[in-house]
Design a protein around this nucleic acid. Structure first.
Lengths: 190, 190, 190, 190
DNA sequence: TATGAATGAGTCTTCATTCAT
DNA sequence: AATGAATGAAGACTCATTCAT
């Protein structure tokens, strides 16, 4: 197996094990076993468990941004682009519950505290969403609120509902997703 | 020191240490030290670390519910009650950031999984908010969405922003709080 | 309650708790609770748990010797006295299973190693049995074996069977007891 | 060192430490030190202290059975086989006093309670002795007593004397062993 | 004198990390 | 480069003993 592939394999195994058992329920030995490598091998790619976790976070972030921004109808009206992002956000989280669970855990852990939160999940001003919102705000379509508040008004509810869905408390079907995104739009539009 | 006081002292220390370092970064010895008691003393009040954490959660929940529902203008219009709850919710979280961080951690941990999530933080349909929303919905003031979605539309953004504030990314002042609550109201009203 | 009575109460409680749970399954707190005294009170009578156990052993030994020697038909033939002792030995053990279990535990523990074993259970040359056997040996009724061997030939089987009985593997009824003692007699008589 | 050897080394160290200090006087750290391995290493071979002890018991039992049954003159008269077993039983115990002390402790502990007692030491009806005695009883050479009683009449005294010897109270030399076995034979023969 | 809350050393066990092979 | 056995520091928990009341 190639070096790069092995690295990927380890990251993926870490994701699987950690998202199920949590950071502290996932010993390196378990991750190694899942990746079908020896424990020592992991340390050839990542100097410590903490680094592995941070690297995994970064990898997921990239993967995530890519998925959500995919097919963004760049030249369509703001509202349409907004709905696109909302839909893809939910779609991705539901399709990749492991990613979602890991990212949530990461946010709410001392690991995540090291990171500026304005990256992913609940905030996106580093990326494409920022552009959409900024543009809309200039057109005075949106309320004149700080970017962080706008992001919160959008991703806060979505994350909350995805969590509810993952935990089985509600069932997020197509129409409900649309209605929810619409409600978020109501929250931010002027 | 009285027995009750010591119990309180231990709970408070656990809150302080855990909210900063996380569950797994907070050994019993550290909690004991913070409370200025010996480790064994903790076990006179709580049979295990897990129990200590659950008891702490329950205590915070009560404290929290009380604070948020305090002075609720029961006989005023729905919109006014809604704003009251939103304001007090934020106010409490900002005044008690340790509580907030602990509760957030608890929710996203295997501990919290034992609890139905319909309690606090991100959901409130167990209590007074549920009544307010239900009443408003009957009057057709609100969108005909499931209660869980309504709660998500309210608490999702608030929690998100409180976290941002606690972590120092934004500054939630009085006017911003009002505007945010208003935006949430826009999200749910029909 | 009198001082002496309290001491007795503690010893009796220690016996009950230890014989059921073993030395290491019987914390001082449990013994205190059983005796309905405070933990500290035990330390007014016994300087340490180890001492308590040794004192208990000594008390049981006395109680035991008294019970077994009771009503010994001093002026009857040796064989008759032998049977008397055998019967009373078994009778006492079956009637006082707690004593029996404690003494067995004590023997097989580092505690007991401190004691010369030629006291009780499986040896009795300190007391009346010694006299009976010595007398019999002088009359050449018994094999010319060392006293320790004679004692082993008598108490070895009895203890073994009592243990089997206590554990429920056999049922020691009257006739079986008689036959067993007779067999022991066959073992030692010349 | 080989894996198997290390396992053996740990078992042997456990035997040495436990037979001297007792189960509760033998911390894993002490066993590890004796075996010249780190504490964690023990857990690679045995999932818990309890398992270690049970494995040790099983290993000793096998060793023991093998030693005692070795060279059993299968086609010789019953009496001869009986003496052989008695001799080898004593011989093994005296040659392996650690084994003996451990097995005795095990029997009288909560650990041993899990095991049916019809195994070793004080009972042997699971194995070869049972066959010898059963055969002898059919030939009406022995008293018509239950097997458990016969075993008690044999092993009771032997164990008792071995213990005395190990503790230094008597000296079991060759002739004394022979006489003692003969006395046991007198106890059981009809 | 009696109490029992408090202490903290000691135990078992886990797991991130290392290193000889 | 890869392995995984070995390490030992760290953590939860127990309980004999002490001491302020």
């Amino acid at each position: 197996m190639h070096t790069v592939e092995k690295r990927e394999e380890i990251l993926q195994s870490a994701l699987e094990v950690i998202s199920v058992h949590g950071f502290h329920g996932a010993p390196m030995s378990m991750i190694a076993e899942q990746a079908q490598v020896a424990m020592g091998t992991i340390y050839r790619f990542f100097p410590s468990k903490e680094c592995l976790i941070h690297e995994l976070y970064k990898a997921l972030e990239i993967r995530f941004q890519k998925a959500v921004s995919e097919g963004l109808p760049v030249h369509r009206p703001v509202r349409e682009r907004f709905f696109h992002i909302g839909r893809f956000f939910i779609r991705y989280c539901l399709a990749s519950p492991l990613d979602f669970r890991f990212l949530e855990q990461f946010q709410n852990s001392p690991f995540g505290a090291a990171y500026r939160r304005d990256r992913i999940l609940g905030n996106g001003d580093a990326g494409f969403l920022h552009d959409v919102l900024a543009e809309a705000q200039q057109e005075q379509i949106l309320k004149p609120l700080p970017m962080a508040v706008l992001c919160a008004l959008i991703f806060g509810p979505l994350i909350c509902l995805i969590r509810d869905h993952v935990l089985g408390f509600i069932r997020l079907d197509e129409p409900l997703v649309e209605e929810t995104i619409a409600a978020c739009w109501d929250a931010i539009r002027s």
